[in-house]
Simulated scan of single mutants.
Amino acid sequence: MTLSLSLADQIALELRADIIAGRLLPGMPLVEVELVKAYNASRNTIREALHRLGQEGLTRYVRNKGVMVRRLEREEVRDLFVVRRTLELQSIAQSGPLTAAQSEHMQNAIDATTLAREREDWRAVATHSLVFHQQIVGLMRSPLFDEFFAQVIAQLRLVFCAAPDEQRFQSPWLERDREIFTLLAQQDKPAAGEAMSLYLDDSERLSLALFNRP
């Protein structure tokens, strides 16, 4: 049974999507009066939506400034990669042969990443790569994991926004996503798992290095 979402839930999901797409960046204010007008919603509804985003680790309240998109701390980034390893590697280990729909969704994400890279739209490159990894977790066919991982992806997006050179930070991942997809399509789960493990090691190292900058 599918439960209908409240207006506050819908607004929270749209704002989360804006974070994943790189339209809302760390430190940006989420002004109540502007959101009331944008969504034609009551103040209470907007506050409920912002509260949900706060529970997801995407916003924080700053005294005298209001609600702002969060900047994550180094230890939070470490924790995100603990979650990524648990979910993405387990998804690969438990996966069966890719269905036509699964294969199509992954290929679409890779194609979108490729097009964004050709356009040198590095923000979109990051977004579509994250969508590919959502498809990996989707192999478990668990709506609960899908929803949880969407929150993780949104937090990761806030980390990636901190990269001073988006092209340099994002350019390595497309070919590695494509390699993982090819191995899964070939039903070589051990090699796909190893490729994913190395991918996550390198991604974590580069993400943590963002906190070493002066």
Rank of each mutant, 00 (worst) to 15 (best):
R123D: 06
A124H: 07
L80C: 01
E204T: 10
R176S: 13
G66A: 09
L206M: 12
N40M: 14
Q151P: 00
V62E: 15
S142M: 03
G193S: 13
R117Y: 07
L15A: 00
L53H: 00
R60Y: 01
F181E: 02
D177S: 14
C161L: 04
R157M: 09
T182A: 12
Y39W: 13
R78D: 04
L156V: 04
E34L: 13
V137K: 01
G96Y: 10
A126D: 08
V62I: 13
E76Y: 09
S207D: 11
P164R: 09
A101Y: 04
A109T: 12
E32S: 10
D79W: 08
A195E: 09
N108S: 15
A163M: 12
G66M: 09
L144M: 05
R84N: 02
N40G: 15
A116S: 10
N64T: 15
G22L: 01
D9T: 12
A17G: 07
V36K: 14
R176C: 09
A192C: 10
N64Q: 15
F148I: 01
E175W: 06
K65N: 12
V33C: 06
R71H: 08
W173Q: 03
K65M: 11
D146K: 02
R176D: 12
G138C: 01
S103T: 09
L58D: 02
Q134D: 02
L98M: 04
Y61H: 11
S203H: 11
Q170N: 14
L50R: 00
